[in-house]
Amino acid sequence: MNWLTNFVLPKIRAVVAKKEVRDNLWQKCPGCEQMLYYRELETNLHVCRNCGHHLRIGALERLKILFDEGAFERSALPEVLADPLRFRDRRRYLDRLREAQANFGASDAIAVASGRIGGVPAVVAAFEFGFLGGSMGLAVGEAMLAAADLAVKNECALIVVPASGGARMQEGVLSLMQMPRTILAADRVKEKGLPYIVVLTDPTTGGVSASLAMVGDLILAEPGAQIGFAGARVIEETIREKLPDGFQRAEYLYEHGMVDLVVPRHELAAVLGRLLGHLHKGRPQAAAPAS
């Protein structure tokens, strides 16, 4: 042992470790297959510069994009009973859950935060698609109720950004029960005269689309997002024919009258800010007409 092994070697190792390359420096665009450099992707909000494809992003990234100056205060999620059915498929659900929790440093597939959008206070609940497919079980349902309570307490809008394959099968019928429960969450906000706004992102399907996602006072969608109830494969197997181009995409829903507006990610915060400006409690009022 000498200073060389004790002092220099660790330093050298540290330097080498730092230089360790990210394994995802380059990413292939799912839209046009162009190779995209991560730094450029980040500055462009994970939208492909070549074809405009909106890549999926995590919940934290979403919160940073939506809130003014990327500043927000994150809420802890309410605790729920983990693995109520002691579910096991090829793996134990509890193991899948613990693994996802470790990967994301979060207790479940949703992040709730408060801050300002366009200067107006708002609460945002953003789904984490990477966390077991953004699936909705007890934890997500309870988090939606907590987010609604927070919006009511702050007298501000609740903005929900789903990115989810639907209900969490491993919680069985209890995940189905989150459909009425999240609709009740939305109602808590609406009953107080506060806006409940949904921003549909890729993907929003199954039980999440048929509950909290479709009862918004206003419903926005990101370009190209897949949105629907039944999975495309299930439909194809049922009708045994190819699905039409653009089926279940945000633009398709827009044409069918199901969403208010398709908004590119770069404009999302600005559009939300404008809407909140019109709808929030402290909005400017015209001078009362003379009596």
């Binding site: 509950s211 479709m214 109830f229």
Partner: peptide, 25 residues
């Protein structure tokens, strides 16, 4: 389950189910 078809999706299957639950409640 709800019918998984192109026409059902086009006319807003998800919205129709969500609003039915909302109405029940």
């Amino acid at each position: 389950g709800a019918y998984p078809g192109v026409d059902a999706e086009a006319r807003g299957q998800a919205e129709a189910i969500a609003r039915a639950i909302e109405t029940c409640l």
